[in-house]
Design a protein around this nucleic acid. Sequence first.
DNA 1: CGTCCCGTTGAGGGTGCTCAAATTACGTGG
DNA 2: CCACGTAATTTGAGCACCCTCAACGGGACG
Lengths: 232, 232
Amino acid sequence: MSTCDLCVVRNRAICSALDSDEIKALSAMGRKRDLSAGESLIWEGEDSVLVANVVDGVLKLSTNTEDGREQIVGVVYPSDFIGRPFGGTTGHGVTALTDSRVCVFSRRDFDNFAAEHPGLERKLLQRTLAELDRTRRWMLLLGRLSASEKVASFLLEMSERLVEPGCATDEPGAKRAFVLPFSRQQIADVLGLTIETVSRQFTRLRNAGVIDLPSRREVVIRDPDALSAEAG
Amino acid sequence: MSTCDLCVVRNRAICSALDSDEIKALSAMGRKRDLSAGESLIWEGEDSVLVANVVDGVLKLSTNTEDGREQIVGVVYPSDFIGRPFGGTTGHGVTALTDSRVCVFSRRDFDNFAAEHPGLERKLLQRTLAELDRTRRWMLLLGRLSASEKVASFLLEMSERLVEPGCATDEPGAKRAFVLPFSRQQIADVLGLTIETVSRQFTRLRNAGVIDLPSRREVVIRDPDALSAEAG
DNA sequence: CGTCCCGTTGAGGGTGCTCAAATTACGTGG
DNA sequence: CCACGTAATTTGAGCACCCTCAACGGGACG
C-alpha cells in the first residue's frame, strides 16, 4: 500500500484514473512539498519543469504586465492539477495563497508516465476542458461586468467553493459564511479592479445589509438573493 | 483513400494523430458543413450534441449576459477544434465570422471513437492546453490593459494570425497588411470595449501614421514597432 | 507601546461609456 | 452604371464610473 492510498485527494485528483499498482509507480516519481502562503511553486516564463497536484490549500495562477500590473488568471483548490504538460514555457506563475501542500512531479517524468496511461491523459483532458470553460466564463466577467457585478459574482463563487457543506444552509436564501483565501489586493487582481474599488464595493454591500464582514478575511452572506440580483 | 486524405487540414487538425484506416472510420461518422458568415453552429447553454473541426473560415466563441452584453471568449481558425467532448452544456455559442466550412461529428460518436484512440485524445489534450494558455493571456488583456493597449495588442495578434506568409515582410519593421474577419462591434466584443472606443483608437493610430485603413476591413501596419510599444 | 501592514475612506480627475448625429461604405434595384 | 436605402462606422458632447493619489484607521506583532 503506497502513501497515496492515504491521500485525501486520492479519489478526486487525476490519480483516480489509476489503480493501486499504477499509483505506486506514480508515487515513486513524485514527492510531497509544503508551501507557505506567499511562496511560489512556478514562475511566469520559465520552462515547464514540474507539474503537481494540489493536496491542500489554495493557490493562484497569475501573469503580470511589464510595468507590474497583475492579473490572476486562475485559482486552484485541493485535487486540482497544476502545470503545463508537454513542455513549453509556463505563461503564468503559481503562488500559494494559503499554506499549502502539493504533490510534485518532474514534468518530463510525468509526461512519460502519462503517455503509457491513457486513462490519466483522459482524466487530464476532462479537467482541462472544464478549466477552459470556467476561464471563459471569467472572461465575460472581466470584459463586460461592472465593478458591483464583478464583486457580487466573486462572492457568490467563493461561497460555492468555500462554504462548509452541512452548515444547515442548503435551503436557498440561508446565510453562508466563509473565510476568504484572498487579500483585498488579490481580489482586485482576480476581478481586474483596484483595491480601493473592491473595498468600496464591500462596504457598500455591508451597509446595504447584504453581507457581514466580521473580520478582514471573513464574509457572511446575509442575503444571497440580493447578491444574485447584483451579479446579473 | 478517404475524402479526408484530400482535406486541407488533414495534417494540422487533430486528425493528424490518426493513420489512414482510422481516418476512414472517423470520416464515416462525420460530415462536412458549410456556414455563411453570421450563421451559428452551436448555441450557448444547449447540451453538447456535436463537435467539429474547422476546415476553412474563422468562427467566434461568445457568451452573453442576460441583458445582452456580449463577450467573445475565443476565435477559431482552420484546423482548430470546436465543441465540448464528454457531454455537459456548452458555455458559449459558436458563430461563423466569415463563410466557413467545418467537419462535424456527433459528440457521442466522437467521444466513443476517441475513447478507443488515445492518440486522438492526446492531441486534443495538447490543443486544449494550448488554448487554455492563450485564453489566460487574453484575461490579462481584458483585466489590466487600457483601451489603446488592447487595440494595439489586438492588431498585432491579428497580423500574426492573418498576414499571408511570403509577402516579403519577414524582416521586422516591414509593413504588414491583412483583412480583418471582424466588424468593429466584434472587435469591441473581443476586447471588452465599446464600438465607439475601438473606432476612436483606430483613427488615432491612423492619424499617428502607425496604421493605414484602406477600407473598413483592411488594415496595414505601417509601423509595427510603434504598435508593439503601445501594446506594452 | 510603537511600528508596520493592510484595509478603509475621501477628494479629484481621466478614461471610456452613453446618447446622438453625421458620414461613409455597401448591396440592391432601377 | 448610377441612384438609392440601409447598415456600419465615425465623430461629437457630456457624463459616470472607476482609477489615482493621499490620508486615516485598526489590528498583529515585536
